[in-house]
């Protein structure tokens, strides 16, 4: 770990001011950042500890729920309102990591979780995300865990998390605060970005900008599932995952909000699936068609080709389970 200056901030304003300076990183739970600092993938000159900021509450607000960015993953997953009204979110969080990690990891930090790509985490390997212009080791290397959608020839890393996938299915909003208290709202679906020519940018945060809260829309009910396919039965990143909010009314699909994890650089949402499914009577042919649409632009680099049939089948299984066919 490179040495750094450790500073605290007890207000968002102070934190954004400090974080706007070059080489400064914010730390909350630290479960991802400390990991990467030990590997010297992250080498901040200064760390700003956000834990004195008093915003870890989960509060009802008009039309939904506001989750303070410093709320731990655990706090969200055990919250009775979330378990009842947004079960897909609680399930996704519980499917990720371990209790020890969830107890520390914050909601804001989890949105900013960086990729698990083997070449990103090894500073002796080329990686355009870590070291722009150095190349992508994964393209011709070991790419079992890599993206089949949304990648570019500069980076095929995935966003590895679970929580944000459920938030994308819920169409939650992220509240950001920048310099001089300038705040804005961005959909979780638009928070992460595809690499294109600039894979070093994981998300749309501006310098100094911090996640201060996540806003969940009003509860929508329906059947909410989070299906995570993994090699181990626990404590493993997803090979692929599906967050699904599906409602069947009078024999027809009334709602089908879907998001996919670990197949793309961001929680993957394809509106064409919703458009296809809503209004239709649930049936296997329909689900097959939806699955075909999902993967019609998917491309592997060899090692990760298996994800194409896997996510296809996982989507069908999830839709079958949600609609009980």
């Amino acid at each position: 770990m490179k040495n750094f200056e450790y500073a605290g901030a007890d207000t968002v304003e102070r934190a954004t001011m400090l974080c706007a300076e070059n080489g400064t990183k914010a730390i909350a739970g630290g479960t991802n950042l400390i990991d990467l600092m030990k590997l010297q993938v992250e080498t901040p000159a200064r760390l700003v500890d956000l834990n004195s900021i008093d915003d870890r509450r989960i509060e009802e607000e008009e039309g939904g729920l506001r989750i303070g960015a410093l709320a731990s993953n655990t706090a969200v997953a055990v919250d009775q309102r979330i378990r009842s009204d947004y079960p897909v979110l609680a399930k996704a969080i519980l499917a990720g990591a371990t209790q020890q990690l969830r107890n520390k990891a914050s909601v804001g930090g989890n949105l900013g979780q960086r990729t698990r790509c083997f070449y990103f985490t090894n500073i002796d390997q080329p990686c355009n995300k870590r070291d722009p212009g150095s190349g992508c080791g994964a393209l011709t290397g070991v790419a079992r865990i890599h993206a089949i959608l949304g990648a570019s020839r500069h980076c095929i890393a995935t966003y590895p998390g679970d929580m944000a996938v459920a938030m994308a299915a819920l169409d939650a909003q992220v509240e950001l605060s920048g310099l001089a208290n300038k705040s804005r709202m961005v959909a979780v679906r638009d928070f992460h970005r595809c690499p294109g020519y600039t894979p070093e940018l994981d998300n749309i945060l501006e310098p100094g900008e911090l996640v201060v809260a996540v806003h969940l829309p009003a509860p929508v009910g329906g059947t909410q599932l989070y299906r995570k396919v993994r090699e181990r039965s626990s404590y493993a990143f997803a090979l692929c995952s599906v967050a699904a909010i599906v409602d069947v009314k009078r024999g027809k699909i009334a709602r089908a909000d879907l998001a996919f994890g670990s197949i793309a650089p961001k929680p993957w949402v394809d509106q064409r699936l919703t458009q296809l499914l809503v209004g239709e009577k649930p049936n296997m042919a329909l689900f097959e068609k939806a699955a075909d649409i999902l993967v019609d632009g998917a491309r592997g680099v060899g090692d990760n080709d298996y994800k194409i049939p896997l996510v296809r089948r996982t989507l069908i299984a999830t839709l079958c389970e949600a609609t009980e066919i």
Partner: peptide, 13 residues
């Protein structure tokens, strides 16, 4: 009161 991985956090925090 809650369990954590002590390796992934800093003493100064």
């Amino acid at each position: 009161g809650v369990r954590i991985n002590s390796c992934l956090t800093l003493a100064v925090m």
